[in-house]
C-alpha cells in the first residue's frame, strides 16, 4: 500500500427510499483510478453516476462497500484539502468576486487566504481570467464562470479532482474549447481526475478510461481504455479512430 489509488470504490451499494419506492442507485460498483489518471464516467440520466461521485466526495455515504481517496476516508481527504470539485453550472456565489469565489475552499479548509494570494492569482491566470479578478459572476459569460469553477477546484492544489458535468450548461462550441483548456490545466497539476459527463466525445477527448454505466440498478457495465496520445489536439474530434471509439461506446451505452 505504498502507492494507493487516487480514487477507489469497491463493491459500493446505495439505495434510496422515496414514496414507497426503492431505487437501487448503485449496485456493486467497483472503480479504481490510479494516481494521475483521468477517468470519465458516462451513462444515461438517473443511472447513478452522480451518486457515485457524491459518495466519493463524502456528500453521501454508501450502504455497503469501501470508498478510499488516496487511501483515506473521503471526509478526511476533503478536510485536508486533497480533493477539488467542480459542479454543473459553476455554483458560484453571486455576491462574491471572482477572486473571493476562488478563495472559498481555502476558507472552508481553514487556510489563510492572504498567505495564498499568489496561488489564487496563479489559478486566475491559469484559466485565463487575468483582469477579471474583481468581477462578479453576473458580469461574466457562461464559459468564464465555468473557468472560475475550474480555478476554484484547483486552488487547494488537490491530488484528486472531481467534476460533475462541469460543462453541462455550455453550448457545444464552448464546451470543446473548455475541454481543450481543461486538458492543459489538468496535465499541469498531475492530479487524479474523475469526470461525470453526458457527452461521449467529451469523455473520449479527456479521459484515459471511460466507465460506462447502465441504470436501474446503477452499475458499471464496461470500462473502455482510450489509447490516444497526449496532449490531444482538437483535430482528434474529426479523426476516424475517434469516431470508431465513439460508436463503440455508444453501442455499449445503448446495448
Amino acid at each position: 500500500m505504498n502507492n494507493p489509488d487516487g480514487i477507489s470504490l469497491s463493491g459500493v451499494y446505495k439505495t434510496f427510499e422515496g414514496r414507497g419506492k426503492t431505487v437501487e442507485a448503485l449496485h456493486d460498483v467497483t472503480l479504481n483510478c490510479p494516481p494521475a489518471s483521468f477517468t470519465a464516467v458516462i451513462g444515461p440520466s438517473g443511472c447513478g453516476k452522480s451518486t457515485a461521485l457524491r459518495i466519493a466526495l463524502g456528500l453521501e455515504t454508501a450502504d455497503k462497500g469501501e470508498v478510499l481517496i488516496n487511501g483515506e476516508a473521503p471526509i478526511i481527504a476533503a478536510k485536508s484539502g486533497k480533493t477539488g470539485v467542480a459542479f454543473q453550472d459553476s455554483a458560484l456565489l453571486p455576491w462574491r468576486s471572482v477572486r473571493r469565489n476562488i478563495e472559498v475552499p481555502l476558507e472552508v479548509i481553514g487556510l489563510n487566504r492572504k498567505a495564498h494570494a499568489s496561488q489564487v492569482q496563479a489559478m486566475i491566470e491559469l484559466v485565463g481570467l487575468k483582469g477579471f479578478e474583481n468581477s462578479l459572476p453576473g458580469e461574466l459569460s457562461g464559459g468564464m464562470r465555468q473557468r472560475v469553477a475550474i480555478a476554484r477546484a484547483l486552488v487547494t492544489e488537490p491530488t484528486v479532482l472531481f467534476m460533475d458535468e462541469p460543462f453541462g450548461a455550455l453550448d457545444q462550441i464552448l464546451r470543446r474549447q473548455m475541454n481543450v483548456e481543461l486538458q492543459r490545466v489538468w496535465q499541469e497539476t498531475e492530479s487524479t481526475a474523475l469526470l461525470v459527463t453526458h457527452g461521449i466525445d467529451e469523455a473520449i477527448f479527456l479521459a484515459d478510461r471511460v466507465a460506462v454505466m447502465h441504470g436501474n440498478p446503477g452499475r458499471i457495465v464496461e470500462i473502455i481504455d482510450v489509447p490516444f496520445a497526449r496532449p490531444r489536439h482538437p483535430d482528434l474530434f474529426s479523426d476516424p479512430a475517434f469516431h470508431a471509439l465513439t460508436d463503440r461506446i455508444a453501442s455499449v451505452l445503448h446495448g
Partner: peptide, 9 residues
C-alpha cells in the same frame, strides 16, 4: 454551493 462547502469538509 452548499455541496461545494460540504465537499471541502
Amino acid at each position: 454551493a452548499s455541496d461545494l462547502v460540504k465537499a471541502y469538509g
